[in-house]
Amino acid sequence: MQLRHLFAVFLFLHSVAGDNVLIWPAEGSHWINLKFIIEELIERGHNVTVAVHTAALYINYSEPSAIKFAVFEVPFKSETYEGFLKNILQFWIHEKHNLTYWGRYTALTAVLTNGTIMARQICDGIIKNQKLLQKLQESNFKVLLADPVHYCGDLLAIKLGIPFIFTLRFSPGFAVEMLCGQIPAPPSYVPVALSEFTDKMTFTERFQNVFYSFMYAWVCKQLWRKWDSYYSEALGLPVTMC
């Protein structure tokens, strides 16, 4: 959902005091940015619950807070999760610039594949936790605010039978948004996410941008294909993500 739609929903929530809002967050700077929205929701009288796993790094669910937390178990420690995040940063900040196009493709595929294993474990922790799902169902949430960087926010909302809002549009090369969301973004004019190009590109940069869009689209399509069976099993019907 685009930002203007998100803003419209917030205006609607402002007019109805005391609604219950469920948050599906991501880590690092994504959580820091999301906290501003959460604080505004609380200021306007809404009840905010954050679904958080036990290996979270930045989300401190043990300290007293106006935020409620729905904590669920995952089979790995915070150190493992931190190592995964460091590998991503190492790739994007230090390694990507020194690799060929094909090298970036293979390195990104390896990083995201490892992340997919951990992402499934996080999803399992809440999607397959019937006791927690029942508790969330009884909380009568009006909407779920999800960071799309973490999988299964949309799936959780569907399981609970409530609408969901994505906090941003973000995937390598806008691949998920273009393939799944059908957002028009011609790569010869629109710089793809993570390309580091601006809207003023040289001919060479435009060519690189087109290449990135196809490369990242292939990466995302392969990764999302692995989630088809997961979503299908969770919902009890055939699902094709892209």
Rank of each mutant, 00 (worst) to 15 (best):
Glu82Cys: 01
Ile93Met: 08
Pro148Ser: 01
Thr49Phe: 09
Thr106Phe: 03
Thr116Trp: 01
Glu27Leu: 10
Val111Lys: 04
Gln121Val: 02
Leu145Trp: 15
Met178Gln: 15
Ser213Trp: 12
Lys221Leu: 12
Phe36Gln: 14
Tyr81Trp: 13
Ala193Thr: 05
Ser78Phe: 01
Ser232Tyr: 02
Phe170Ile: 09
Lys159Trp: 01
Pro191Val: 04
Phe36Arg: 14
Pro64Cys: 09
Gly28Ser: 14
Glu196Ala: 10
Ala8Gln: 14
Thr106Asp: 01
Tyr101Ser: 05
Leu41Lys: 04
Ser232Met: 07
Val219Thr: 08
Ala70Tyr: 03
Ala175Thr: 05
Leu99Met: 09
Val149Trp: 04
Pro75Glu: 03
Val219Phe: 03
Leu145Lys: 02
Asp124Val: 06
Leu168Ala: 07
Ile59Thr: 03
Cys220Glu: 13
Pro75Gly: 06
Leu108Phe: 13
Val74Pro: 00
Phe211Pro: 00
Glu43Leu: 15
Ala66Gly: 13
Val16Thr: 13
Leu3Cys: 00
Ser139Trp: 00
Leu160Gly: 00
Leu168Pro: 00
Arg225Gln: 14
Arg206Met: 09
His94Gln: 10
Phe84Leu: 15
Leu168Ile: 09
Met215Gln: 13
Ile122Lys: 08
Ala56Thr: 14
Leu99Ile: 09
Tyr81Ala: 04
Gln182Ala: 14
Ala51Asp: 02
Val143Cys: 04
Asn60Leu: 03
Glu205Gly: 05
Lys226Arg: 10
Ala110Asn: 08
Ala55Phe: 06
Ala185Lys: 10
Asn33Ala: 15
Phe211Ala: 15
Pro238Ala: 10
Asp154Asn: 07
Val149Arg: 10
Gly125Trp: 01
Ala185Tyr: 02
Tyr212Asp: 05
Phe76Gln: 02
Ile59Phe: 00
Glu95Arg: 14
Gly45Ser: 05
Ile38Phe: 02
